[in-house]
């Protein structure tokens, strides 16, 4: 029942297929690749993947006591909607724990640098591993790759020690110098996210950057371009789709992270992200989970916007640019 509402009916796709028959190379290829069975299978997968989230969405609009006594599908026979859960989550502010908006800002201010910093560093490093020949390059790359498996949990305490020793004096000095910057800052969270993202980012970007045809880079070098120029003028534009896709994933991971925030953010409204606040809203014994249903959707909005915003990059194809060059 829900599938009708949220996915296009099979007919539409079939109609599209028959309409596309004929002109254009891409159109012809498409016709041959798409069979009714494939379309049907795609729709089945899409429905299966959507139902759980859809159920949660409906639940988040249902009165708290109904959520735990009847299934969400009973909504269709007995529609009762309330915005109380969202009201709870969005506007239950007070002096010590303000409304959600402030945490939203924090989440953004953590996630944006937490995405940009590792991406810049990783794309530089990936370029070095892929296109700068030096002794031990292979070994070093394997080491970086293997670092992916160092469990986050095991790195928390040593990193916190380092931050307390090195970063805290600096942060306090900054606060003394510019009083309206709190001494509880985002810096440790950014650095932590950057560090934890680097191995995977270098590994993924290396894979794409190393597939850029060697002739393109050789040609640039013959023309006398330095590594910096090659990186900015050739590698970066060509790797943009890969960088954009990784940016989406990294943004999601940072946005949804709770563990790193628990350790490295202060937990106060100064720096705590949305996830930390939502975990608190759930209550110390996890009893208020009707709030969690609404909270989950509040925090879902931004990642989806990012996905839509960056999608055009990888729809173009990861290697579309290099194929032309």
């Amino acid at each position: 029942m829900s599938s009708v509402a949220i996915t296009p009916q099979p007919k539409t796709s079939e109609a599209a297929v028959s309409a596309a028959a004929g002109v254009g190379r891409a159109e012809r290829v498409k016709r041959r690749l798409t069979s009714p069975w494939a379309t049907a299978a795609a729709i089945v997968i899409a429905v299966l993947w959507t139902i759980p989230t859809f159920g949660l969405l409906l639940s988040s609009f249902r009165p708290a006591e109904q959520i735990s006594t009847s299934g969400w599908w009973t909504f269709f026979s007995d529609p009762q909607l309330t915005l109380a859960n969202y009201g709870d989550v969005l506007f239950s502010g007070s002096a010590s724990s303000p409304q959600l908006g402030e945490y939203f800002v924090n989440s953004l201010l953590i996630a944006i640098p937490g995405t940009i910093l590792p991406l810049v560093l990783a794309s530089l490093a990936a370029y070095a591993f892929a296109w700068v020949k030096f002794k031990g390059s292979g070994t070093l790359f394997v080491v970086v790759f293997a670092l992916q498996i160092v469990p986050l949990q095991m790195a928390l305490i040593p990193l916190l020690q380092l931050f307390v020793t090195f970063l805290q004096p600096f942060q306090n000095a900054l606060h003394d110098a510019v009083p309206f910057i709190s001494e509880r800052q985002f810096l440790p969270v950014w650095i932590a996210h950057t560090i934890f993202a680097l191995p995977l980012a270098i590994f993924l970007l290396h894979n794409f950057i190393s597939e850029i045809p060697g002739e393109v880079i050789e040609a640039a070098r013959v023309d006398g371009a330095g590594h910096g120029q090659i990186f900015f003028r050739i590698v970066l534009p060509l790797a943009m789709p890969a960088i954009a896709s990784f940016a989406i994933f990294q943004f999601l991971w940072v946005w949804n992270d709770l563990l790193v925030a628990l350790v490295f953010s202060s937990g106060t409204p100064d720096t705590a992200p949305l996830t930390q606040r939502l975990a608190e809203l759930a209550g110390s014994r996890g009893e208020n989970w009707e709030r969690l249903t609404a909270g989950a959707f509040v925090s879902l909005v931004v990642p989806l916007l990012v996905f839509f915003g960056l999608q055009r990059f990888f729809v173009r194809g990861l290697l579309a640019g290099s194929a032309k060059g």
């Binding site: 010590s96 928390l156 307390v164 805290q168 628990l262 202060s266 975990a279 608190e280 110390s284």
Partner: peptide, 21 residues
């Protein structure tokens, strides 16, 4: 008095103490 509450207190207090914070 700045109060910070966390459902993860039991684990996090160990992390913070060992981390020097």
């Amino acid at each position: 008095v700045v109060y910070e509450g966390s459902a993860e207190f039991e684990a996090q207090i160990n992390v913070r103490v060992q981390g020097g914070n």
